Computed example of a mutant assay.
Amino acid sequence: MYNHTVARLTYRGLLGRRRAAILFALPALLIIISVAVRVLTGVDDSTAANVLGGFALATMVPLIGVVAGTGAIGPEIDDGSVVYLLSKPIKRPTIIFTKLIVAIGVTVAFSAIPTLVAGFILNGNSQQIAVAYAVAAAVASVAYSAIFLLLGTVTRHAVVAGLVYALVWESLFGSLIAGARTLSVQQWSLALAERIGGEGAITSEVGLPLALILLIGVTAAATWYAGQKLRTLTLAGEE
C-alpha cells in the first residue's frame, strides 16, 4: 500500500522552496510568541493553554494541514503531471495512501513537534499541557491531511477551499457557534487533550468516544473518496 517512489516525489514537491517557507514560518512564529509570552508573563498554565489552543491548534495546525494536504496532490492535478504518475503500474489506492502518509508526516513534524516545544517553553509541561496539545496536534494532523488531500482531488481551488474551512469553519464558527463545535476537528482533538491534561486544564465540547469515532470515520471516508476521485480522473485521462 506504500510506494517509495510516489513518497519521494511527494516529499520533493511539498518541501520545495515556496511551501517550505510557509511550513517553517508558522512554527517559528509559534516559538517566538511562546518565548515572548514566557518573558512577559512568566509561567502560567492558563496562558499556556490559551496560546497552544488559540494559535497552535486552532490556526497553525489546520493551515499546515492545508499546505501539506492539498500540496500532496493538487499541483500535480493542476499542471497535468498526475497523468504521468497514473500511467505507471501503481494501484490508485496506493497512490492516495502514500500521499496521505507523506502529508501526515509533514503536518505532524511541522505542527505537533513545535507545539510540544512551545508548551515546554510556556510552562514546562505543567499539568501535561505541552504533551496534551502536542498529541492533539498530531491527531488533528491525520484528519486534516485526509480532508485537504480530498479537497486536492475534487477542486482546482483546493487551497482556497482549505483556507475557508480552516479559518472560517474551524477557527471562527468552531469557536463561536455551539452546534459547529461538534463537527470540528479541533474539538475532536481537544477531547483527547482533555483526557491527557490535568483536571480542568483543557476542555472540549465533544466527548472522547464520539470524538474518536468522528476522527476515524472522517479520515477513512475522506481517504476512500479521494481514491474514488482519482480513479475517475484516470478514466477521464484514458478517454
Results as ranks from 00 to 15, higher is better:
residue 62 P to S: 02
residue 102 V to C: 06
residue 173 F to D: 03
residue 113 I to Y: 10
residue 78 D to R: 13
residue 113 I to K: 05
residue 127 Q to N: 15
residue 94 T to Y: 00
residue 74 G to F: 04
residue 128 Q to G: 14
residue 98 T to M: 02
residue 69 G to M: 03
residue 48 A to E: 03
residue 154 V to F: 01
residue 37 V to T: 12
residue 78 D to N: 13
residue 38 R to D: 02
residue 166 A to E: 01
residue 85 L to A: 14
residue 156 R to V: 05
residue 131 V to C: 09
residue 138 A to F: 08
residue 57 L to D: 07
residue 76 E to F: 04
residue 170 E to M: 00
residue 51 V to R: 04
residue 101 I to A: 15
residue 50 N to Y: 05
residue 71 G to A: 03
residue 38 R to I: 01
residue 79 D to I: 08
residue 92 R to H: 08
residue 62 P to V: 01
residue 89 P to V: 10
residue 61 V to N: 04
residue 142 V to Y: 11
residue 51 V to A: 08
residue 143 A to R: 05
residue 153 T to F: 01
residue 100 L to D: 01
residue 106 V to Q: 11
residue 78 D to H: 10
residue 145 S to K: 10
residue 83 V to C: 08
residue 133 Y to E: 14
residue 45 D to V: 11
residue 135 V to W: 13
residue 141 S to P: 06
residue 174 G to F: 02
residue 142 V to P: 06
residue 159 V to W: 05
residue 179 G to F: 12
residue 126 S to C: 09
residue 144 Y to S: 00
residue 65 G to H: 01
residue 102 V to R: 03
residue 67 V to H: 01
residue 102 V to K: 02
residue 156 R to L: 07
residue 162 G to W: 05
residue 104 I to G: 01
residue 73 I to H: 11
residue 72 A to P: 05
residue 64 I to C: 09
residue 118 A to G: 10
residue 81 S to K: 12
residue 75 P to W: 06
residue 84 Y to N: 14
residue 87 S to E: 10
residue 152 G to L: 00
residue 83 V to E: 13
residue 53 G to K: 06
residue 92 R to F: 05
residue 82 V to Y: 05
residue 139 V to G: 14
residue 138 A to C: 11
residue 179 G to R: 15
residue 140 A to Y: 03
residue 127 Q to Y: 10
residue 83 V to T: 11
residue 133 Y to L: 13
residue 160 V to W: 15
residue 87 S to C: 11
residue 63 L to E: 04
residue 155 T to F: 00
residue 170 E to Q: 04
residue 177 I to D: 07
residue 87 S to R: 12
residue 65 G to T: 00
residue 82 V to H: 06
residue 168 V to N: 12
residue 123 N to Y: 08
residue 114 P to C: 06
residue 153 T to K: 02
residue 60 M to A: 05
residue 125 N to E: 10
residue 160 V to G: 15
residue 170 E to R: 00
residue 52 L to H: 03
residue 133 Y to G: 13
residue 82 V to M: 12
residue 139 V to E: 12
residue 63 L to K: 03
residue 43 V to H: 11
residue 132 A to T: 09
residue 76 E to S: 11
residue 57 L to H: 12
residue 75 P to V: 06
residue 170 E to N: 01
residue 50 N to W: 04
residue 137 A to R: 01
residue 93 P to S: 11
residue 160 V to C: 08
residue 59 T to F: 15
residue 71 G to W: 00
residue 174 G to P: 02
residue 97 F to W: 07
residue 139 V to K: 07
residue 125 N to G: 09
residue 42 G to C: 03
residue 174 G to V: 03
residue 61 V to I: 09
residue 87 S to P: 03
residue 66 V to P: 02
residue 176 L to P: 05
residue 57 L to F: 09
residue 129 I to P: 07
residue 129 I to Q: 08
residue 159 V to Q: 04
residue 38 R to W: 00
residue 153 T to Q: 02
residue 109 A to S: 13
residue 66 V to I: 09
residue 91 K to L: 10
residue 104 I to H: 00
residue 173 F to S: 09
residue 169 W to I: 07
residue 109 A to W: 09
residue 104 I to E: 00
residue 89 P to G: 13
residue 137 A to E: 01
residue 177 I to L: 15
residue 56 A to T: 02
residue 86 L to R: 05
residue 129 I to F: 15
residue 49 A to S: 13
residue 163 L to W: 03
residue 137 A to P: 01
residue 138 A to R: 08
residue 117 V to H: 08
residue 63 L to R: 02
residue 119 G to L: 14
residue 46 S to Y: 08
residue 108 V to L: 07
residue 124 G to T: 13
residue 147 I to V: 09
residue 60 M to T: 04
residue 47 T to F: 03
residue 83 V to W: 06
